[in-house]
Design a protein around this nucleic acid. Sequence first.
DNA 1: GGGAAAAGTTTCCTATAGGCTAATTTATTG
DNA 2: CAATAAATTAGCCTATAGGAAACTTTTCCC
Lengths: 207, 207
Amino acid sequence: MSVEQPDMPELKIESGSGLQTSVEPLQLGKRLREIRQSLSLTLEEASQKTGLARSTLSKIENEQISPTFTAVQKLANGLQIDIPQLFAKPRSTMASGRRVLTKAGAGTPHPTSTYEHELLSTDLARKKMVPFKTRVRARSFNDFGDWVRHEGEEFLLVLEGELALYTEFYEPVVMSVGDSMYYDANMGHALVSLSEKDALVLWIAAR
Amino acid sequence: MSVEQPDMPELKIESGSGLQTSVEPLQLGKRLREIRQSLSLTLEEASQKTGLARSTLSKIENEQISPTFTAVQKLANGLQIDIPQLFAKPRSTMASGRRVLTKAGAGTPHPTSTYEHELLSTDLARKKMVPFKTRVRARSFNDFGDWVRHEGEEFLLVLEGELALYTEFYEPVVMSVGDSMYYDANMGHALVSLSEKDALVLWIAAR
DNA sequence: GGGAAAAGTTTCCTATAGGCTAATTTATTG
DNA sequence: CAATAAATTAGCCTATAGGAAACTTTTCCC
């Protein structure tokens, strides 16, 4: 069977359920203009360095056209821009100097059939990590429709109980209090409690 | 007094904004195909999720055409891809499917005058997060030469004892077992144990 | 192996990106 | 305010991206 993202609080910025293009306010044109100007280049100079026409650059910067990937490459190449950086978010929105305290048990609950998540530190936007405490209710691997799988990496630490971590490509591992695991979340994974009571883990996901 | 980075295991800041010269052999199409297949989606399904024609997807994956930026956005949106990551270099060195288990107490010790770090999951290269358990030995803020401060964000959870988190710009906060804190590591910070025994915290840093 | 269904590729057409030139508008500066 | 340079716009053309459907390949049953 093939369920999509059966569990886990959404890490994405969320776009409702419609198959819309909606999100991503990324203003590529604006971004490029800033970069060019910060290099104090005229459109003409930028044109020479990139091999793109002056008018084309203008149109791109004013979002009148959507550059092809090859155009973006020329841009990046000519202006010495690192492509991933070009598309990176407008720099950690978390204004320098912020912090959020979450008292024990005061997180945001987020129950599902197999897990019971308590999201810690909700109110900071655009975090690099999403931390939560999770009570593992599943008692057998069959409680899952399919692997949980998504972009990023995860770290987890067992706080209470004993459990088995099932992962794609490997044998399941038994973990006790104090044991921790770091893994690629693209790899299918799922937790099952081995003790009578639910197991409790600290779970941190990073994109 | 002013010590530089008095504590904390090195986070290692990769070639930050180094001059990114020369060409990009970046095979966008190949990359996209890998991603689609890893999600076990057919071209048709991907088409529905992204709003791009089946044929268009095929051509893009086979590098027959160079997608426009708007197309890339639709792709990223529909398949839940993070755009910067899409263009990131050699694909997270952590080959898809890796994991590392660290048994309780089996981490790499890393003692300093005020803290006693136990680094968890050492052997994975290029991780997004650096997790460690720390025993807080400091009993007063004066035990520190200066604020600890560095790039990135941190999350910490109190595992044992009671302690005070001192942060620049704010009043110190008292934290007990189960309390957690998420903060910008650029902001000066330091931990002090309030109980007789050392306090124990789980600490995770992300760049 | 043969036939059907599904996944993927290619063809053909339309929409749009990108180049060239020149005209117009918007800064700079003396 | 005049003079100049930079940026935007417009017109027109060519190259190519993206969509619809035909075609080809692969997969899977019997």
